[in-house]
Simulated scan of single mutants.
Amino acid sequence: MSRQQAERRGRTAETIACWYLRLKGWRILARRARAPGGEVDIVARRGRIVAFVEVKARNSAEAAGFALDRHRLRRVAIAAERLAQRFARDGDSIRIDALFVVPGRLPRHLQDVWQG
């Protein structure tokens, strides 16, 4: 797959993930939020929870799981830490989630995937 195709696939997966989260009661605060040291695909809020969401689009659930390694999660965690002041309010819970987008299946939302 070319870089352009991968980029398009990623953006499509992020759009699907945003709609899925909205249907589950989340409000999307940002997409592709950048901070020094990393990027977060989606920043979402539901009540007092702010989730920094990493989206993975693969051909199978197993491949999506393997694509989410410690190195990538660390980059998301660094970005989330730097972006939290922009999106979180006093008393909010902050977490890092993952959302897998696989053809022919509903998206799979994994909550609180980073424990530091």
Rank of each mutant, 00 (worst) to 15 (best):
V102H: 08
A79P: 09
V53K: 10
R82K: 15
A64L: 04
A44V: 05
A77P: 05
S60E: 07
R48P: 03
S93T: 14
L68T: 13
L23D: 11
I42D: 00
A63T: 15
R95L: 07
L23W: 03
A64R: 12
A98G: 03
L83P: 02
Y20R: 12
W26N: 06
W26F: 12
A98T: 09
G37D: 10
P36E: 12
F87T: 14
A84L: 06
G104T: 08
V50F: 05
L68W: 09
A61N: 00
K56E: 00
R86Y: 03
D92S: 15
R75H: 09
A77W: 08
G91N: 09
V53C: 09
A57R: 15
W19Y: 05
F100R: 11
C18N: 05
A30C: 11
R75E: 13
R27F: 10
V40I: 08
R31C: 04
Y20S: 13
K56D: 00
S93F: 07
L68I: 15
W19S: 07
I78K: 15
I49N: 03
Q85F: 12
R89S: 07
W26L: 09
A98P: 02
W26E: 08
S60P: 02
A79W: 13
G38P: 03
G65N: 13
E62I: 13
A88K: 09
A64K: 00
E39F: 02
S60H: 10
R89P: 04
C18M: 11
D90E: 14
E62C: 03
L99V: 12
P103F: 05
E39M: 04
R95E: 06
A33Q: 10
R31I: 12
Q85M: 05
A67H: 08
A88Y: 07
A63W: 11
P103H: 08
Y20I: 10
D69A: 07
